[in-house]
Amino acid sequence: MDKILSVLKDNPRLSDSQIAAMVGLTEEEVGERIADFEKSGVICGYNTVIDWEKLEETEKVTAIIELKVTPRKDTGFESIAEEIMAFDEVESVNLMSGGYDFSVCVAGKTFQEIAMFVAKRLAPIDSVISTTTHFILKRYKQDGILISSDCEDERGADIL
């Protein structure tokens, strides 16, 4: 993997000059490379993994919805995916192999809100055959980052 990308993926808040030191380029070169990656769509965006549970005022419920669909005659799965991903409530859409077609991650304030979204927005889409909703009860790891984990640094030998 490109070194800049591998550094950036795990440490998006490093400055260009810090990344430059790590990969052995100049700050300007790093800035240019990142701009190129953004322009060409290799870097699609930047995301922050937040443990919403820790913020009491925030209510957030997430569900994974399995969708079975009938591919459309001309556009197959593409136009169905486009319809689904247009909703703000939808966090991710993936075409799957196996027992169903789309895995859709939906976020809302309450269980009720998500249930209504599925019933009123997803299920009625032309070509959708069935939906199965799985609510996420607890997140342990997301995008490679541990959530709510108490991994303490146990290293403590005295003479090293």
Partner: peptide
């Protein structure tokens, strides 16, 4: 190695 470069430069 990447951390080494980061910390030396820091």
């Amino acid at each position: 190695d990447m951390r080494r470069r980061l910390i030396v430069s820091g």
